[in-house]
Simulated assay, not measured.
Amino acid sequence: MELGLAGRRALVTGAGKGIGRSTVQALCAAGVRVVAVSRTQADLDSLVGECPGVEPVCVDLADWEATERALSSMGPVDLLVNNAAVAQLEPFLGVTKEACDMSFNVNLRAVIQVSQIVARGMIARGVPGTIVNVSSQASQRALANHSVYCSIKAALDMLTKMMALELGPHKIRVNAVNPTVVMTPMGKANWSNPDKAKVMLDRIPLGKFAEVEDVVDAILFLLSNRSGMITGSTLPVDGGFLAT
């Protein structure tokens, strides 16, 4: 299916690894010019080697002032993928201030800040735009040792709806994708234990975890005009986990 994304300019956060990196690669293959944001310069260097033409921006999105400096003069953006996230898993009684602060700053506050910068540019130019936030099935189901992560992702889902409400009059669509466990290198490392994996897999009707391409395809669909009447949605990419 032709998505009609060629010639547009996108910004992807958390672009150095996993879903973000694969999203950058897919967008480049679709003829999109991409600004890739990561806090790890080595990841950006290798990404540029794979996808010449990518514009790398190395910044820690937990740092508000540094993010403002890095992105305020980046030029026009038509598509935004807020993918950067951290997952610090602790039992509720063991949750630390550091975990709360880092999760809030990267998983929610940075989405607000980056989206503000991009949306203001779209509005100033008088052009439509599309934003996709990468959330999680954890936003809608309680998972052991995920108190902060689940709570912040639930907040991200509501932020997605609020952004859709307030940016819609400016012809800016905002949606979220909510994956299950994804077989990135990190996902494989965290879920390679068969006993641990079985507990989750038994709750997924399709009986398998998501591949990175499953999530990237959903992101590209929501970025494209093929989803032109969809905004404020949270799209599960979970093999039916949330249906159980």
Rank of each mutant, 00 (worst) to 15 (best):
A218P: 02
A10L: 09
L61R: 00
H146I: 11
A66V: 12
S147C: 14
M163N: 06
A144K: 14
D217G: 14
V215D: 12
V54R: 02
L44Q: 01
L222Q: 01
V181P: 04
S192W: 05
A210V: 02
G126T: 10
G129Y: 04
E213F: 08
V59A: 01
S73R: 02
R203A: 12
A70Q: 13
H170E: 02
K196H: 15
A154Y: 11
F92C: 13
M163G: 02
T67G: 09
S192Q: 15
D101P: 00
E50N: 09
L165T: 15
A138M: 10
V132K: 00
C58T: 00
V57N: 01
A210T: 06
D202G: 15
L165P: 05
K97R: 15
A243Y: 08
I131T: 01
V54I: 04
M102V: 08
C100N: 13
W64H: 03
A144I: 14
G16L: 11
F92V: 15
I131A: 13
D101I: 10
G129V: 01
M102G: 02
G14N: 07
P236C: 04
V127K: 13
A155L: 11
S38W: 05
K17W: 07
P205R: 04
N178E: 05
L242P: 11
C58W: 00
P128Q: 09
G239Y: 12
R120C: 08
R39Y: 08
G53W: 02
G14P: 11
I172L: 08
V12N: 11
L61Y: 01
A84P: 09
Q140C: 12
E2Y: 10
Q137S: 05
P236M: 05
P128R: 06
L156H: 10
G75M: 01
L242C: 08
L47W: 06
P91H: 10
E211M: 11
D101W: 05
E211P: 10
E213R: 15
F92Y: 08
F92I: 14
G129C: 01
V24F: 14
E213C: 05
R203P: 04
A218F: 13
G168S: 11
E166G: 14
G75V: 01
K17M: 13
M183C: 06
T23Y: 06
T23M: 07
V127A: 15
G126Q: 11
I219W: 13
A164T: 10
G18K: 10
T184N: 06
M122V: 09
D60Y: 00
A99Q: 09
R141V: 15
M200G: 07
L79H: 02
N105S: 04
N193F: 11
T40I: 06
K171E: 12
L235P: 02
F92M: 07
V95E: 11
I112M: 02
M158Q: 15
